[in-house]
Design a protein around this nucleic acid. Structure first.
Lengths: 232, 232
DNA sequence: CGAGGCCTTGAGTGTCCTCAAGTCGCGTGG
DNA sequence: CCACGCGACTTGAGGACACTCAAGGCCTCG
């Protein structure tokens, strides 16, 4: 029996394209791996040797300039796919933000399995198209929004994302209170700001009664409408 | 006989995945369309009704904030694919920057044709993965680079891009001189800057002898090494 | 309970934006 | 052929927003 049968993302990850015999075959190629918060699984510039599905936890994709400035270029959640199939090198690091659980494949194995299973490639294509759209949307934030708009947009985005399968109660309604899986520095690296600016904007939103910050990582959205207005 | 046989991007667009009988079938679904510079073919927020291959010309993908600030989120060249297959709405406008020539399909037709031709989907997947990587790289520029670094990076990127099939002599060597397919405003919208800042940085590069600007759209890279240093 | 890291807050600076005027290039028409 | 007008670009002056540098406070975890 395949361990995939009990996998909590079995029906939402790209594996959902496969029937049980195919999942069984894929299962022999992959293995589970635990990652501690802060641990990296893929490094910017390295040869692309593995790909994976996220089962549990939150991970960041990041890249930096030569002199060490970092930009987080993506955040992945359970059922998301990571790594670069069909390509030589990976241009972005992948690092766990929380303790995480992933299902890892060698890239070569995955590539050839995928080529033989068009339904799997189709799922991956749809997922990649959606991710590309999301990434392009984020470019508007990075290029054209000011600090207040960036932070407001970020909080709304996160509250919607954390509802998705495997993260929290799957009610479909954006959460009004949640714990950020990010430090202030990481929020800054997502928004293209400094840590101080993020802190000041969060404090301002709290002072204005739009959000509440009961602890370092916790956020409560008190006035979603205002937050949406501020998001630009 | 299919008009695709004489298509100049026949072997570089995703159509290269198809044999001649398949191309013939796809040909019956598509039609050529000319676009004048400035003309849009897809609008942000509209239902996704068509997709296309770029045959000739340069087009921009853009999105904006509610109050009218614009960000260019992608630039497409001959053999690139545009539109949103397998999805309800398009989140980004597509507008011709030069006179252009595209090969248009109804999204529904394309979707079902693609589902029946895994090799086509595979090509599209590879292309989409590459585009996602490129877009993420651009996020580092938007989020973490200063004006000088942005302009320097932009000039290097463009000079490499304009060498690609269908644009210029396909020598494989980045061009030292070329005509920008963008106005100053469009460059600003790509880099997340204002038109004045772009102008000042270009002037500065010229004053320092790194580039030359013989006319409004023309650029000559005089000192590529320095430009690469400035790109960060 | 103490230490250390993370976060907040403050003061001052610099980069890029805004607003405004001026110049250049190009097409049109006299 | 030149005058004209328009749009695109350049240049300048001033200001705002986010950054830098620095100190202090607060969790959190050992």
């Amino acid at each position: 029996m395949s361990s995939c049968d009990s996998c909590i993302v079995r029906n939402s990850a790209i594996c959902a394209a496969l029937d049980s015999a195919e999942v069984e075959a894929l299962n022999t190629l992959g293995r589970r791996r635990r990652l501690a918060a802060g641990e990296s699984i893929i490094w910017e510039g390295d040869e692309s040797v593995l790909v994976a599905n996220v089962i549990e936890g939150v991970l960041k994709l990041s890249a930096g300039t030569e002199d060490g400035r970092e930009q987080i270029v993506g955040v992945v959640y359970p059922s998301d796919f990571i790594g670069r199939p069909f390509g030589g090198t990976t241009r972005h690091s992948v690092t766990a933000l929380t303790d995480a659980n992933v299902c890892v494949f060698s890239r070569a194995d995955f590539d050839s399995f995928a080529q033989d299973h068009p339904a799997l490639e189709h799922k991956l294509l749809k997922r990649t198209l959606t991710e590309l759209e999301r990434t392009r949307d984020w470019m508007v934030l990075l290029g054209r929004k000011n600090a207040e708009e960036k932070v407001a947009t970020f909080l709304l985005d996160i509250s919607a994302r954390l509802v998705e399968p495997g993260c929290e109660a799957p009610s479909g309604v954006p959460l009004g209170n949640f714990d950020l899986p990010f430090s202030r520095q990481q929020v800054a690296d997502i928004l293209g700001l400094t840590i101080e600016t993020v802190s000041r904007q969060m404090t301002k939103l709290k002072r204005d009664g739009v959000i509440d910050l009961p602890s370092r990582r916790a956020v409560i959205i008190r006035d979603r409408t205002t937050l949406e207005d501020l998001a630009g």
